[in-house]
């Protein structure tokens, strides 16, 4: 998946869109199932993120190429079949590369099909854009998703196991917060990240119009999922 970096600025914007401005996890709050389920450790998060990135970029490319050939009535079904095809590819590829990883991620690799980000991107963006910007946008979204997963997985692994990428950080006397690697930890860590992001946004909004009181700045995240 090589991306031509020296493109027109509009393409660059497409690529960067998903990294920050429309980050799928922290801004759009999409694709929560894998986000919370596999982020027990940093390495799981990265592999899940990369797998999703590949599926996202490949299926958006294909959707974009076929966008004039697919009748409007059956577009959702066609998108899903395209996505499912690439997910099957990734599923078998991971099984071939590392069996340990395959067992750690379990059925959640196959569940990439049901990730809202994929269908959302295919429907809202790739179906209306030419192949190159569509792929770049999808790639950016995927990287943004990976960064989000890593942010959650890193925190959970550090607190829940005292390690990062399997390397012990605090020595043998560290008492791990077991709850962080259990399901509730996923909810709490993601909630904390969302609060951090909301705080950043509020600070920025306050700085841009310093005369007004902070109560007038509506910075709440839309509660869509």
């Amino acid at each position: 998946m090589s991306t031509p970096e020296k493109k027109a600025p509009s393409n660059m914007d497409e690529l960067l869109d998903g990294l920050w401005k429309q980050n799928p996890i922290f801004v759009m709050v999409l694709g929560m199932c894998p986000t919370l389920a596999v982020t027990v450790s940093a390495i799981n998060s990265i592999s899940m993120g990369l797998a999703t990135t590949f599926v996202l970029a490949a299926s958006c490319l294909l959707v974009s190429l076929l966008r004039n050939a697919i009748p409007k009535e059956v577009r959702i079904a066609s998108f899903i079949v395209i996505i499912a095809t690439f997910v099957t590819v990734v599923d078998y590829a991971i099984q071939a590369i590392s069996l340990d990883l395959y067992e750690a991620l379990g059925a959640y690799i196959k569940l990439i099909v049901a990730n809202c980000i994929l269908l959302g991107r295919a429907e809202a963006h790739a179906a209306k854009t030419p192949p190159i910007p569509a792929t770049l946008n999808a790639f950016g979204m995927g990287i943004g998703f990976t960064i989000g997963l890593l942010a959650i997985g890193g925190v959970r692994e550090i607190l829940g196991a005292g390690k990062l990428f399997g390397i012990s950080l605090f020595g043998p006397h560290f008492q791990p917060w077991v709850v962080m690697v259990l399901p509730p930890g996923g909810f709490f860590v993601l909630a904390c990240w969302l609060i951090v992001f909301a705080w950043f946004k509020q600070n920025k909004a306050n700085k841009s119009k310093p005369q007004q009181g902070c109560h007038t700045t509506p910075t709440t995240e839309g509660s869509r999922a």
Binding site: V179, P183, P184, G186, F188, I195, T219, T220, S223, R224
Partner: peptide
Amino acid sequence: PQLVQGAALSLMLGGLLSLAFM
């Protein structure tokens, strides 16, 4: 608090429910 409203609050609730179900 305004910062916590929206998705963050729902996730906190989800976390507490999840803790209870454990």
